[in-house]
Structures are given as C-alpha cells and as structure tokens.
Design a protein around this nucleic acid. Structure first.
Lengths: 338, 338
DNA sequence: CTGTTAGCGCGTTCAT
DNA sequence: ATGAACGCGCTAACAG
C-alpha cells in the first residue's frame, strides 16, 4: 500500500471522490448508508488524507511555526511545550526551529517557514534586529505573536514578563539586605529582556540611593558558558569586588555560582546571588537561588492561544500585549553582606 | 502582496512558469540573461515558492517528524536540539510532537504526521505498545528511526545507550563502596530503557553476591513528581531501609534527593544515590550526582543523520543499531554506607 | 534553451 | 443527496 488517495477510496466505496471528501469533512448532507460504506473503505485502505493537497486547496496548512533562540534553554523549552500542547489540541502541528540567537539564521528560518505556508508563527526573537523581518511578515499577512522578547516600536501581539518590575524586586531584595556594591551580568543590550532588567536594576539602585556604577554591569551570553565565567571572574577580580550579583537569567546564575565556588567562595556568605527565571526540577541546588520565577509554560500556552485566535480571525484589534507577572522566590543564595 | 505565484513571476519576467521553476531549482539549462530576468522578478515580487505545492508534485515535503515523550525533559530536549540541527543543515524542517508518554496520543500524533506527509520520523517511543503502530509505518514505507528506547522484536534503525552496562557500572560502584541493600526506582517495565537498566542492576548485584530482593525495586514515573516521592518514601519507610538508591534517570534522582532531604536525611551520609543521565547546567547541585552521562545531543544528531540517509536511499541494509556508550561520572552523591 | 501538456490529491463551485 | 469540472501552485515529461 503506497498511500491510497481519495479516489481509491471512492472507487472502493462505489461513490465519487466528492462524497468521500464530504464524509471526511463531516458534511451533513450525506446519506447514512453511503457514509458507512465510505468509512469502511477508508478503514480498509488505511487511507490518510494528504495534508499537502489539503493545505493547497484550503489555503491553510494547519501548521504553526515556533522559533526560539535555544530550544535547550529550559525557559524556552517550557514555552515550546506549552505552545505545542495548545496547538495540538486545536489540531495544529508545530514546526520547530532553533535560531541559536543568530539573526541570519533566524531570518532564514522564518523564510523557510513561510515557504512551508505555516498559518502563523510564534517567535521568541533573537534580538532587536529581528524587527525588519517582522515587517515583511506582517505584509505577507501571516499572523505572528512575539513571546518573551519584544522589539522597539513593535505594535503587534506580545506575551512577556515584567522585566523591570522583576529586576527591581530582586535588586531591592539585595539592597534591603544591606548590599551596596551590586553587580549585574546581563546579555547584550539588543535583547529587550536584558534592557528591561537593567532598567529595573537601575531603578532599584536609585531608590536605595546607590549611585549607578557602569563598570559593575558586564555583558555575557547565556549560550556561551565561557563568557559567563569570564564576566564573573572579571567582577570578582576587581580590587573591590561586588558583594552581590544579579544574574540576568538562571543559566547565567549557574555559571556565576560555579565560578564563585571554583574560586573558593561560599554562597551566600562570600557573595549573594539572585537571578531571573527559576530552575525547574532542582530544589536541591546549593544554595538554591533566590529568583524571579516566571510562568514560562504559560507564556507558551497564552501566546499560542492568541496566535490561533488571530489565525481564525477571532480577534480584530491591533495588537494585544499580555504581561505575566513573575514571583519573587526568596531562598538561600542571597544574605546580608559581611 | 498576498503571496505571488510562480506564474506571476513568469509573467513579470516574460517567460513561462517552467523556466522560473528551472531557475529556482538551479537547473543548468537556462540562459544567463533569462536567469537574471527571472531572479529580478522573484526579488521584486518577494516571491516564495509554495512548499505545499512543491511537496505535492515532488512527493516529498522536506519535513521530518520528531516525536518524544516529554519535550521538557532535558534529555529529550537535547536529542531534539541535535536532531533539529542536522535536519536544518540538510534543508529539512522539523515537525515536533510531544506524546506525553501516552500511547494513544503518540499514535494519534504519528497519524497526524503521516497525514502531513513527513518524509521520515524520529521516534523516542512511549513504550513497547508503540510497536504495532510502527509496523503500519513500515508498510507505508515512511522511513523512521528509533532513539533511546527500543521495542521487543524491532529490527530497524535504532540509536541508543547501553543501559545494561551503564546500570551495571553504577551499581557496581555502589557495591564496591560496600552497599548491600541497594534499591532501584524504575519506570514502568514496558519501557526498554527501564528493563535494560534493571538487568544491569541485577547483574551487578549478582556479581557482588547480593541476592536480588524484588521488594527493593519500585516503580515511578519521571513525569509525575508525586509518584517519585511516593516511591522514595515507601523505600525509606521500610523497617530496614536501603543504604543506597539507583534512580533510573536524573529526574527521578532529583525527586529522591528532594524527598530524602525533606526527611532530614543527608546525602550521601545517610543515603547514597546514583542515577542515569547527567544534569546539564547544574554542577552545583548538592550533592552533585554520581551518574552515567549519556551523549544525548549526539543521540539526536546521529539518529537524524541516519534517518536522512535512509530517506535519500543511501542505505540499503536492513537496520542499523548504534549503541553509544555512557560514561560513569563519580561525584559526591554516593559514599560508603555507615 | 524554452514552452506545452498533464497531473500531484484534494476541495470548491455548480449542477443534477 | 451526489457528481463533474475546474483549479490550488508546482514540476516531470515531452516537445520544439
């Protein structure tokens, strides 16, 4: 059996292809007896409708693309899982692609997905530079929803966390503990979440009357463990090192903890550490991070729901922005400075 | 611009659709001048070939499916990442689906993917029960490759770790430390990896002259944290509790560590713990697990490469079995019994 | 080197 | 309630 077609089924059932199509699509105007004959033929042939042909005529593929910077980053993984779940329930397939945080690759991926005629796209943008491509997308009227990261001037659908507020809480927690030399390890400034978290960091410092020291803010890439180590070491090598570090996300925090411990520092005694994003599955991290926990999987479900609604034309407003609050979880990685 | 077609391009370039097609597919027999005119038209219209239509005529969609039991499980996530990378480089898209370890859902997913006319499928089977569906797959001559988990009697392509040997090493490590009451928390017996690891467990016990005690082997589901806690508590509640636990994978181990610590037990002083699969990103787990590290991402890359080779008909042998060795990494979670 | 014809497998008219 | 004809966008097989 080399894949039966609708005509094979029709022949076997002694009807026309059209009638088979009606049965398949649950059209009401089919006699019961005919319907049963067709169903029997479908079963006998193990017939599976050809999605490509269907997509071609119906002009929609029942497939949505999900593009993330790193599928192995637990935060994005959860987004993907949430999105897949919602898509699946609605009868949509998920085309996954990993941009690796690389704008060129992301751009290529988006083009590929468009060629596949996806009905919509969920995008955790690599960086601000993704914007130009999005405009093209908009013109092709392929609905898309941004998750987690936004882009300056973007006016479409977006599901994100509150980076300013989260960072503010984290750093305020540190200042309340008595820290005054608080460093931040951030990702490049062309990523909106980094910018927001840095804004929150500065707001909290200001609120505590601590002057902003640019040399205490260093850049690293979560994907690149070596860059995180280098950043942490740079900070700790300073004549007067910081007493606390605010890591832009959990992966960076893990790198900082690792580096500190390798230098014989004990957390939180010798260094306090807080970060964005909780670590799944690992309550026995030592010390378990004080962090802003974000509902990552919910980012995915809400964003996908929004996308699907957009696809089915249920929504007609310009662009919805959903901001999901994070939760400050105080644990053991931060204490008063010595 | 509501998506131009090949005919629009042809008209604009003053040629036939066929010529445009030739240019698009880098056919050699096109005059340079014509080619340039076509390329200009393509650029001007922002034309993107319709992958659905292409797939329909070419009879291949350039898409492969990847089906895993839990995309948020770091082990599978890495497999997916490796697979996606290889697929992408070869110009294939990845349709991702999450079976949630549920046979019915897996079956439905596979059918859906077949309807989408994927060119092949990478499958981390939910359980032995996946077998029947695979036979159907084979008949539809859609190439597929199994990863990580196998199925009794399966004769096709497979990329997996050596569960027997890994488990043997882990448990031998424990017996060498002096443990004799070694429990195992396993997943259901219809998952091949669980069976293999249990075999290794028994072999190691036998080699050490320790009689096998069935009551020391308890079942849990890695997806379900509560079941892991229940299993661990059941073990620790015994009149004479085990001095060591072999957890079938890292997620289960995390649950065991959590449970033990909640009971005021200190690892490894009060309980030794070893497991399969390393924890990515978390060297500061306390105590950091002694484990068999498996090259998960490599599982994904090799399996996808195998699949693509199969799709392009490069291979004509019956079925290849690739067994990737794991590595025993001795760390702090296991020590001599008190 | 280029164009014509004829489908790929399905769904959408419009009849009957 | 059912069917015939046509087209979705593209390419394989032949012309020429």
């Amino acid at each position: 059996m080399v894949t039966a077609t609708i005509r094979d089924v029709a022949r076997l059932a002694g009807v026309s292809a059209m009638t088979v199509s009606r049965v398949l699509n649950a059209s009401p105007h089919v006699a019961d007896a005919t319907r049963r004959r067709v169903e029997a033929a479908v079963a006998e042939l193990g017939y599976v409708p050809n999605g490509l042909a269907r997509g071609l005529t119906r002009r929609r593929s029942k497939t949505v693309a999900v593009v993330v910077p790193d599928i192995a980053n637990p935060f994005f993984t959860l987004i993907v899982r949430g999105a897949e779940e919602v898509a699946w329930r609605a009868g949509y397939h998920v085309l996954l692609s990993n941009s690796r945080g690389d704008l060129d690759r992301e751009r290529a991926n988006i083009d590929d997905m468009l060629a596949s005629r996806v009905d919509g796209m969920l995008l955790a943008a690599a960086a601000d530079g993704s914007g130009s491509k999005l405009k093209a997308l908009g013109r092709d009227d392929v609905p898309f929803v941004l998750v987690d990261r936004t882009i300056p001037g973007y006016r479409g659908d977006l599901v994100k966390g509150d980076g300013v507020e989260g960072a503010r809480q984290l750093v305020e927690h540190l200042t309340a503990l008595g820290h005054r030399r608080i460093a931040m390890i951030t990702e490049p400034a062309d990523v909106s979440t980094s910018r927001e978290r840095q804004t929150g960091y500065r707001e909290a410092l200001e609120a505590a009357g601590i002057p902003f020291d640019p040399s205490l803010v260093v850049e690293a890439s979560a994907i690149d463990a070596a860059s995180v180590r280098a950043a942490a070491n740079g900070l700790l090598d300073r004549p007067v090192p910081p007493t606390a570090v605010f890591a832009v996300n959990n992966l960076v925090a893990l790198g900082v903890a690792d580096t500190a411990q390798a230098r014989g520092l004990e957390l939180p005694r010798d260094l306090s550490l807080v970060c964005f994003d909780d670590i799944a599955y690992a309550p026995q991290l030592n010390p378990f991070f004080t962090a802003i926990a974000q509902p990552a999987e919910t980012f995915g479900t809400i964003a996908m729901q929004l996308l699907l609604d957009r696809i089915s034309g249920l929504l007609d407003d310009a662009g919805r922005i959903v901001v999901l609050p994070g939760e400050l979880v105080v644990r053991a990685s931060a204490s008063a400075p010595r």
